[in-house]
């Protein structure tokens, strides 16, 4: 029963996308990418901490949508649940517990922003140049198959079982570490 189900998952036939469908998907991606970049820029420039958290929410959603475009459904679902669900709540807790000012706060940034700007731009320049050099106008395969959750599970529990177990130890350590650090005593 089990094995036949897995077999069915693995033998999903990739279906090539028609140019029309490709155009739709591409347009969708460019739109959400633009939204994401704008939201990211607002996030690092806004004067309101709560707004910054909300802008981050938008960026994370855009990233999840990008995963869908790339056919990584499980990563997208996890992105929504872990990031948008758990991490955002944690960050908002952080905002609340540190008594952030509701409304605009003038003292969120350093005065000299050019240092950060210069670093970011130079990093982008280096990365952009090398990306263009390396991949240019390489296309993703048109008959790109959706990577199913079952495949992810197979991979994690066979090939990546040791990192997976190590990760569980890390989470435990982080849990205990967080409790110890934040404990009132």
């Amino acid at each position: 029963m089990m094995s036949s189900a897995l077999l069915a998952i693995q033998s999903t036939n990739p279906i090539a996308l028609t140019p029309n469908e490709l155009w739709v998907i591409n347009t969708f991606f460019y739109v959400i990418a633009a939204v994401g970049i704008v939201a990211a820029l607002k996030m690092v420039t806004t004067k309101n901490v709560v707004h910054a958290a909300l802008y981050l929410l938008v960026v994370l959603t855009v990233v999840a949508a990008t995963y869908i475009v790339l056919g990584a459904e499980f990563a997208a679902a996890t992105q929504v649940m872990v990031y948008i669900g758990a991490v955002m709540v944690l960050l908002l807790f952080g905002v609340m517990l540190t008594r952030a000012k509701i409304g605009d706060d003038g003292d969120l940034d350093y005065d000299s922003k050019w240092i950060g700007g210069l670093s970011a731009v130079s990093m982008f320049a280096v990365m952009g140049y090398s990306l263009w050099e390396a991949f240019g106008t390489d296309e993703l395969p048109a008959d790109m198959a959706v990577q199913r959750t079952g495949q992810v599970a197979n991979s994690i529990f066979s090939q990546y079982i040791v990192p997976f177990e190590a990760l569980s130890m890390l989470l435990l350590a982080a849990l205990i570490g967080a409790v110890v650090v934040a404990r009132r005593d």
Binding site: G36, I37, A40, L41, M43, V44, V59, V63, D107, L108, D109, Y110, K113, I115, G116, G117, S119, A120, V121, M123, F124, M127
Partner: peptide, 13 residues
């Protein structure tokens, strides 16, 4: 996104 993140890390207090 990466570069924006770097900018944020470097400018936010």
């Amino acid at each position: 996104l990466f570069s924006i993140g770097v900018y944020g890390v470097l400018t936010r207090k």
